[in-house]
Computed example of a mutant assay.
Amino acid sequence: MTTYRINRASDPDDLARKTSDFIASQISLTLDQRERCQIALSGGSTPARAYALLGKERLPWDRVDVMLGDERWVDPDDASSNARMLRTTLLAAEPGSRAAFHPVPTVELANAEASADAFGRSVAELCEGEPPIFDLMLLGLGDDGHTASLFPGTQAAKTTDRWVTVGRGKGLDRITLTAPVLSAARQVVFLVSGAAKQVALKRLLDPDESPDRTPAKLVNSSKEIVVLADAEATNNL
């Protein structure tokens, strides 16, 4: 059974610092054992502060491969692009800019399916294993219980026979890693912030919760999953 360890932060700024420190520590630990480190990061507004701090960490970034767990099928310069957010935070300046970023191809290809196929090939080439294994998988948690772009009641949440698929949420096509890849990471971390996430977080931690209602429950790991959460998100636990 999947187990969770909650690391509480006092406020969003403290959460950003804890998240940056945790990711930096995982990168260092990985690079002590292997030549390169592969991490998959979440999009959205919550991790942006953490990524800005992380990009200032004195790490051997030239040995780090960065990917996204999911991406909206929009132009890379669109305000809602996760790649754009990474370029303006983690990758904005040295030393973080020395990381090798492998963005999800989007509108330069014919459609979202073509993008998913292309990104799937990139993930399989970059990461060892079947399913591909990331050293760190940082995930968000939606107030509806989704993670990456695995939304309740969608085919993407049920897909297990490919590493990347097309999800649809909030009116947009999205390219997303599937549950087998999310679960295969050496370290899985959920980043949760705000009072609106209280119910979803409680469901995530409930061993009897259905993954049909809360797709984040599809992420299963043999190693303890770390939950980095602020005071507002954990208030009712």
Rank of each mutant, 00 (worst) to 15 (best):
T2W: 02
T2L: 03
T3M: 10
N7L: 09
S10P: 01
D11Q: 12
D13R: 14
D14K: 13
A16K: 05
K18S: 13
T19G: 07
S20A: 13
F22V: 05
I23E: 06
I27K: 05
I27P: 02
Q38T: 09
A40Y: 02
L41H: 07
S42K: 09
G43C: 06
A48N: 01
A50T: 00
G55H: 05
K56M: 07
E57K: 15
W61T: 03
D62R: 14
V64S: 15
V66G: 03
D70N: 14
E71H: 03
E71R: 02
V74M: 07
D75A: 12
P76A: 07
A79Q: 10
S80V: 04
S81V: 00
A83W: 01
R84V: 00
T88G: 07
L91Q: 07
G96A: 12
S97L: 05
R98G: 13
A99W: 02
H102R: 15
P103D: 14
P103Q: 13
T106D: 12
L109W: 04
A116V: 02
D117G: 02
A118H: 07
F119W: 08
R121Y: 05
S122G: 06
S122T: 08
L126Y: 08
E130R: 14
I133F: 09
M137C: 08
M137S: 13
M137K: 11
L139S: 10
G142A: 13
G145P: 00
H146C: 10
L150W: 15
L150A: 15
F151P: 03
G153Q: 12
W163Q: 04
V166I: 08
R168D: 02
T176C: 12
L177K: 12
P180N: 15
V181R: 08
L182N: 10
S183I: 11
Q187T: 07
V188S: 04
F190T: 00
V192W: 13
S193Y: 03
S193E: 12
K197N: 13
Q198P: 01
Q198E: 14
Q198I: 05
A200K: 13
K202W: 05
D206A: 06
D206Y: 10
P207Q: 13
P207K: 14
D208Q: 15
E209P: 00
T214Y: 02
T214N: 11
N220W: 04
N220T: 12
K223Y: 06
I225L: 01
L228E: 01
L228A: 01
A229R: 10
D230T: 11
A233K: 07
T234Y: 12
N236F: 10
